[in-house]
Design a protein around this nucleic acid. Structure first.
Length: 709
RNA sequence: GCGCGAUUAGCUCAGUGGUAGAGCGACCCCUUGACGUGGGGUAGGCCGGGGGUUCAAUCCCCUCAUCGCGCACCA
């Protein structure tokens, strides 16, 4: 039959992909309300909103591809399918990025600009990035419903955030307390445990006495904090120190008067150092807890700028690192230093700024993870454990469950307030001693809103339902929640998954999704992680331009097992560009050799039955989230069975021109059209383009054709 | 310290209780009428070491080694 002259040239993704995406957008099929036929079963995927700090990288491309494969597969299977896109304001990450830029270009700090101006600058930065990123998502071919696009910091999401905050506040689950927090002196904000990056360094462990007349030696790697000591703790069973327990001493340490009580506490490891621990409640998490148990005072000696707040001229106002040297010299001069040894130590640094984290007591907002939730008979910690333990939330690959439980066991109260400007402002107002928590600001005069904003994960934790209009009881919320599958990188398992499970169970008493599919890290050809500092990020748009996005998509998926890191190389992508061309030429051969009537006929023979087995196997892989196998199987069938063998032997058969030839032609058409369907979720553009040129009676767009069964 | 993962062809990685696969690379051949972004063929692996379960282990169990990662500790 006559064929479109496009087939006389190799497949050209550049001129096809954007045209096809536009076709899909105009069809309205991304919106589940517009899908053809009666669709009772619902399938929902929320796009993990990428941070509005830059552009999408290959990691986003992998996640987006998996999400889109699932979406397209389910849509073809007749589900009412919603894939909802969005972006994340990523408070700390975004603000610190804009601050750095302004510092670099204008030499100004955020304080020079002021809160309003700074927020304006950030908003325009974010708007620009959001625009870029949503364009990139289109290049990726993500079939998401743009009419429902959401942003974690827009008005609707703000209302949801404030509503949850108030509910938790009223339920006594959110509290404001003076507690030791991770303080980032560089970013001038608290950060959560999950925002800390540990760097192993060698540092000195000093063993010394506070003064010559003090009976016990202690060890520390931070002598400068010792001016804030209030006690020495020993293990209750440590006979070396029994006689001193309960005694109190007034001393002068490096010119600072200190009062030390000897106490017994089981947390002290008798085998470490001298077996005696100098207790600094204000500057160590453990010591803070010891102080709780023994009712000790908490003397702060270091401020928010990591500088000393006590001592004489030699200490006061000094940076902690300088103060350390001052103290060590003082110990030496006074003959108090007994030992100095190298130890390996993990230094806590802030993920976003690199600043060395200083534990400080601060007045902050916390979520209590161990308090019973009113009316639910369980705590947040219970929710987290039960959801996964009961398999109500299934994690793929399942070995991540162990990691997840391990993390829960170590979970502490979640500090949710941040001393930065960009984000959801804490919905609490103060007037003198009065405090008001509400969704809206109080209307009467004299109230001042809390200066802090919320941890970005507070709003992203609500993503599965805030996107659907909650707290309004919308039709969308009823229809699409709980969602079906969440796909995201294992790197954010803790900060995000845990928070989504908490929030959804707390607010709606259901899990946010039934399956969590974790992706690994996409690395460059050398195996290095893509990072902004290395500058080795690949813009997926470059891939699309060079090889076509279809090639990029399937290259990311084939052989990439869930939860496993993978590498992308141009060679691999190039291989699949060739595959796209192969498909193109197979189509050309088929169209060249069959007649239009072959498209109207149905047939079942050995070949179609053989292929039926193949796609049934692939369907099973799809249902079990084995996209890395499904994609490889259809690739292999098309190239090495259909093209290399079936087409080759068909040449002879068709030349004969008899009944067998007719049967063969119909079989070729039948199998090939089904191949295009099965391949569509992986390589949507080229398959849709080919579909548009086939003389199939009553056809629709391939995106809404039925998956073979 | 606790935990997780990896160890399979030169490279990058899949995979399965029955003596192994893909992509790229290498070598040889093919100007065949879908495609040279192609076709046909060849070489190449005691599936990290040791032990166990089994009729049978690369796959299950134990153990060791190396690499990567997470968490904790960080006096």
């Amino acid at each position: 039959m006559e064929i479109n002259e496009k087939f006389l040239k190799p497949y050209d993704p550049a001129n096809t992909e954007s045209k096809i995406y536009k076709l899909w957008e105009e069809s309205g099929f991304f919106n589940p309300d517009n899908l053809p036929g009666e669709r009772k079963e619902v399938f929902t995927i929320m796009m993990p909103p990428p941070n509005a700090t830059g552009v999408l990288h290959m990691g986003h491309a992998l996640g987006g591809t998996i999400q889109d494969i699932l979406t397209r597969y389910k849509r073809m299977q007749g589900f009412k399918t919603l894939y909802l896109p969005g972006t994340d304001h990523a408070s700390i990450a975004t603000q610190s990025k804009v601050e750095k830029e302004i510092q670099k270009k204008e030499g100004k700090t955020r304080h020079d600009l002021g809160r309003d101006e700074m927020l304006k600058r950030i908003d325009s930065f974010v708007e620009e990035n959001r625009h870029t990123m949503t364009q990139q998502m289109r290049v990726l071919g993500t079939s998401c419903d743009w009419s429902r696009e959401a942003f974690t910091l827009d008005d609707k999401r703000n209302r949801a955030v404030n509503t949850v905050f108030k509910k938790m506040y009223d339920d006594g689950l959110i509290y404001r307390g003076n507690r030791i927090v991770n303080w980032d002196p560089k970013g001038q904000t608290t950060i959560s445990d999950d925002e800390i990056v540990y760097e192993e360094r060698t540092s000195k462990l000093y063993t010394f006495k506070y003064s010559a007349d003090f009976p016990i030696s202690i060890s520390t790697s931070r002598p400068e904090t010792k001016v804030g000591d209030v006690a020495v703790a020993v293990h209750p069973d440590d006979v070396r120190y029994t006689e001193y327990i309960g005694k109190e001493y007034d001393l002068e340490f490096a010119g600072v008067p200190i009062h030390i009580k000897i106490i017994a506490d089981k947390e002290v490891d008798p085998a470490f150092g001298t077996g005696a621990l100098g207790v600094t409640p204000a500057h160590s998490m453990i010591d803070w807890e010891i102080a709780d148990r023994h009712d000790l005072p908490r003397i702060q000696v270091i401020n928010e700028y990591a500088k000393m707040t006590v001592g004489g001229e030699n200490l006061l106002g000094k940076k902690v690192t300088d103060a350390r040297e001052v103290i060590v010299s003082w110990l030496r001069e006074n003959n108090l230093l007994e030992k100095e040894e190298d130890i390996k130590q993990n230094v806590s640094t802030a993920e976003r700024t690199g600043g060395i984290v200083e534990p400080l007591p601060k007045l902050q907002w916390f979520i209590n993870v161990n308090k019973e939730i009113p009316g639910q008979n369980r705590t947040f910690k219970n929710i987290l454990r039960e959801s996964v333990e009961s398999k109500s939330v299934r994690i793929i690959p399942d070995f991540f469950e162990k990691t997840y439980f391990h993390w829960i066991d170590n979970l502490r109260d979640w500090c949710i307030s941040r001393q930065i400007w960009y984000g959801h402002r804490v919905p609490v107002w103060y007037k003198g001693e009065e405090i008001y928590c509400g969704v809206e600001a109080p209307t009467d005069e004299g109230w001042k809103q809390d200066e802090d904003t919320l941890d970005t994960w507070f709003s992203s934790g609500m993503w599965t339902f805030s996107t659907l209009g909650w707290p309004e009881q919308t039709e969308d919320l009823k229809t699409y929640h709980p969602t079906s599958v969440m796909v995201h990188a294992y790197e954010i398992l803790f900060p995000w998954t845990a928070r989504m499970i908490m929030m959804s169970n707390y607010v709606l008493d259901v899990n946010p999704y039934h399956t969590l599919y974790l992706t690994g890290i996409v690395r460059d050809a050398k195996g290095q992680k893509f990072s902004k500092s290395l500058g080795n990020g690949i813009d997926p748009i470059d891939i699309a331009n060079k090889f076509g996005m279809d090639a990029g998509r399937i290259a990311l998926v084939v052989g990439t097992a869930p939860g496993t890191d993978s590498k992308v190389s141009e060679d691999k992508i190039k291989g699949y560009k060739n595959f796209a061309n192969k498909i193109w030429n197979i189509t050309r051969f088929v169209l060249d050799n069959v007649d239009e009537k072959n498209f109207a006929n149905k047939i079942e023979n050995e070949l179609t039955l053989e292929f039926k087995k193949v796609y049934e196997d692939i369907t099973s892989d799809m249902d079990n989230f084995r996209f890395h196998l499904a994609s490889e199987k259809i690739y292999h069938y098309i190239w090495h069975r259909f093209a290399d063998e079936i087409i080759e032997e068909s040449k002879k058969i068709i030349l004969e021109g008899d009944e067998k030839a007719e049967e063969r032609k119909t079989a070729l058409v039948s199998i090939w059209t089904d191949c295009l369907k099965v391949l569509h979720p992986f390589m949507p553009f080229v398959t849709e383009e080919i579909w548009s040129m086939l003389p199939i009676p009553n056809k629709n767009l391939l995106i809404v054709e039925n998956w073979p069964k």
